[in-house]
Simulated assay, not measured.
Amino acid sequence: MHTLPLSEFRANASAMLDLVERGERVRILRHGRPVADLVPVGEAAEPVARVPRWKQPIEPLQLVRPDGRTGAQLIIDERERGA
């Protein structure tokens, strides 16, 4: 594992990414404390492209009435009767 300060990472970002592509790990320090680890994609603990729950597709609610009429048909009938 390569460990380097943030200023050095900024100066050599491309070279550090080359190391990561070859399977090595790079730890970045800020003020002497570790703030990030660059690891190859296969080693990542979480999937990178994880879709938030609120963006996941949902199944629309399917209600079936005993008489087979849809909600749209019920609204049209009510409008015709009440208007």
Score class of each variant (00 low, 15 high):
30 R>E: 12
77 D>I: 11
8 E>Q: 03
10 R>W: 12
7 S>F: 01
2 H>P: 02
80 E>G: 11
53 R>G: 09
17 L>W: 05
39 V>H: 00
43 E>L: 15
44 A>S: 10
29 L>F: 02
47 P>A: 13
78 E>A: 12
27 R>S: 13
48 V>H: 03
62 Q>P: 02
68 G>K: 12
28 I>V: 14
39 V>G: 00
14 S>K: 02
57 P>H: 09
65 R>K: 14
47 P>H: 05
25 R>E: 02
8 E>N: 09
29 L>A: 04
82 G>I: 08
46 E>N: 14
24 E>A: 08
13 A>C: 09
69 R>L: 13
59 E>T: 14
29 L>I: 03
75 I>K: 13
15 A>L: 05
42 G>S: 15
77 D>C: 11
32 G>E: 07
31 H>S: 15
48 V>W: 05
76 I>M: 05
83 A>R: 13
30 R>Y: 04
78 E>I: 10
49 A>D: 10
83 A>M: 04
51 V>H: 05
22 R>Y: 05
61 L>T: 02
15 A>T: 07
59 E>K: 11
18 D>S: 06
66 P>N: 01
58 I>H: 06
71 G>Q: 06
52 P>Q: 01
36 A>V: 04
32 G>R: 07
21 E>I: 10
48 V>E: 04
66 P>F: 09
77 D>H: 14
2 H>D: 06
71 G>S: 04
82 G>K: 11
67 D>K: 03
83 A>V: 08
81 R>Y: 01
80 E>N: 12
81 R>N: 13
10 R>P: 02
51 V>F: 05
25 R>D: 06
24 E>I: 04
45 A>N: 03
83 A>F: 07
56 Q>N: 15
6 L>R: 14
42 G>F: 03
55 K>P: 02
1 M>V: 14
43 E>C: 11
5 P>R: 00
72 A>L: 14
47 P>E: 11
12 N>F: 00
12 N>K: 02
9 F>P: 04
32 G>I: 06
28 I>K: 05
42 G>H: 03
62 Q>E: 15
39 V>C: 03
76 I>L: 12
77 D>Q: 11
58 I>V: 10
22 R>D: 13
57 P>M: 11
25 R>S: 10
79 R>D: 11
